[in-house]
């Protein structure tokens, strides 16, 4: 890595030195294009975040794209029902790498207030990897902005090469996630074990 003193010295002379990774990550984190995809109540707060007062454009993420092919970021804004879950996974598969997921609100994280419902998926992290989870019902627009900043920080630290490289840079990793099908009582399979690795609850750990 470049010496910080040397870097600032060069900067004073108008020479900017950056590693390829830094430049690449800086570009990506500053122009995240979210998928214009609202599921429920949180979608209204997502729209409010993009609207005049909260102005998501300040963080470079205002270009909502209706097509998954053009989007980098999927904001899962609302309750994912069992009828909707396969479509959410399919939309995620249709997005081009590198792609990120924000689970916005209690429903997307765990089912939220509707967790006991027979038709509600208890968290989208059962099928697709979630990068940032924002609690709240619904989260305030400020919370969504903070989630976005958290995601930008995460992108900033991602490595492109080496053993710790990011998922999207690892060609061995699966790009497609299996889409669940409608079973007799539940989705088949009820979760994707390659993705869903919940931490054991405190009671189980003891």
């Amino acid at each position: 890595m470049l010496d910080e003193d040397l870097r600032s010295d060069l900067q004073k002379r108008g020479i900017f030195v950056a590693s390829f990774e830094d430049l690449y990550n800086w570009g990506r984190k500053s122009s995240l294009w979210p998928l214009q995809f609202g599921l429920a109540c949180c979608a209204i707060e997502m729209i409010a975040t993009a609207a005049a007062r909260f102005d998501m454009a300040r963080f470079g993420a205002e270009v909502f794209r209706p097509s998954p092919r053009q989007a980098d970021l999927m904001i899962i804004a609302g309750t994912v029902t069992k009828k909707m879950a396969p479509l959410v996974v399919r939309l995620y598969n249709q997005m081009a790498e590198p792609k990120y997921v924000i689970a916005m609100g209690a429903c997307a994280i765990s089912g939220g207030p509707f967790k006991e419902g027979y038709n509600v998926l208890k968290g989208i992290d059962r099928y697709i990897p979630v990068d940032v989870a924002i609690p709240g019902c619904p989260p305030r627009p400020e919370a969504l902005l903070e989630g976005l900043i958290k995601l930008q920080k995460k992108i900033e630290g991602q490595r492109l090469f080496g053993p710790n490289r990011a998922r999207h840079a690892d060609t061995r990793d699966a790009a497609d996630y299996p889409v669940p099908s409608y079973g007799a009582h539940d989705l088949e399979p009820p979760m994707n074990p390659a993705v869903f690795k919940p931490e054991p609850s405190r009671r189980e750990a003891e």
Binding site: A40, T79, T81, K83, L87, F114, E116, N119, V120
Partner: peptide, 25 residues
């Protein structure tokens, strides 16, 4: 049915007052 969140069934399992926050949604 893509957003069927079982409002009615959940309300029938909760107390009368507990149905109030579900009506918000």
């Amino acid at each position: 049915g893509y957003l069927h969140r079982n409002h009615e069934k959940i309300a029938e399992g909760n107390s009368w007052l507990a149905a109030m926050p579900y009506t918000d949604r």
